[in-house]
């Protein structure tokens, strides 16, 4: 079994894919955190009917595979609205729709893990519920969520791979293209696995390190 090193000439191409992977991951992380926070607030503090709808949405997104959501959005949105759906945006939309459900649950767990006494202390000072949420609960919730944030980021980075199924030129897709062109599939895919590993492995460690520094600010 030979490992043909001529494939290394494809490295720039693979790194191009990495660039897209990172861009898509960062974009997804940003959108899902924003949407996830809004969903969590709706679920925890909104009127009952809204809370029920949001809960249903979150549970549904846990049940449907990302691939199915992506394919549905990519093919159905143009049919339903007549608008065109470029692959990158379809992928971003699908990932956002799916992963923000997960983010909402992380926010919810963070917020509900804070002792009731913290809210009461804020109330006793005469703060309003909104002030308590903004100044007391959310800062602590964010700190408590940090350990999950590492696995959250790695999950997003891994999920971006499905974008290859609608031909977004990220790492997995570029691996497919390179493999077809060079016929060196095993080498290409092994290198790609390594590249992903090189991105993902440090991400968790870095988040853990940051959390270790400021964990005490989340303990009430």
């Amino acid at each position: 079994m030979q490992f043909d090193t001529s494939v290394f000439s494809y490295m720039p191409f693979m790194l191009d894919g990495m660039r897209i992977t990172v861009i898509l991951s960062v974009a997804t992380a940003v959108t899902t955190l924003v949407v996830g926070l809004v969903l969590a607030l709706m679920r925890l503090y909104g009127p009952r009917w809204l809370s029920v709808i949001v809960t249903f949405y979150i549970d549904t997104m846990r049940a449907i595979p990302e691939l199915v959501v992506l394919i549905w959005i990519f093919f159905s949105i143009p049919i339903l609205t007549g608008a065109s759906m470029p692959p990158f945006w379809a992928a971003l939309a699908a990932l956002t729709v799916q992963v923000s459900a997960y983010a909402a649950e992380i926010f919810r767990a963070g917020l509900t893990s804070i002792r009731a006494g913290q809210t009461q202390a804020g109330l006793s000072l005469g703060m309003s519920r909104a002030q308590i949420l903004q100044k007391i609960l959310l800062p602590q919730a964010v700190i408590r969520m940090l350990p999950s944030f590492g696995s959250y980021l790695t999950m997003i980075i891994k999920d971006t791979a499905i974008a290859s199924m609608v031909a977004v030129p990220e790492m997995t897709r570029n691996a497919e293209v390179a493999a077809q062109q060079t016929y060196r599939s095993m080498e290409i895919y092994t290198i790609t696995m390594l590249l992903y590993f090189l991105i993902l492995f440090p991400t968790t460690r870095i988040v853990e390190a940051i959390y270790g520094r400021i964990a005490h600010r989340g303990r009430s």
Partner: peptide, 18 residues
Amino acid sequence: EVFRNVPLLLLVFWAYYA
């Protein structure tokens, strides 16, 4: 560590070819 830190889709392709 390796098999938790690679996307499943890529793993499927890798398994298929490698």
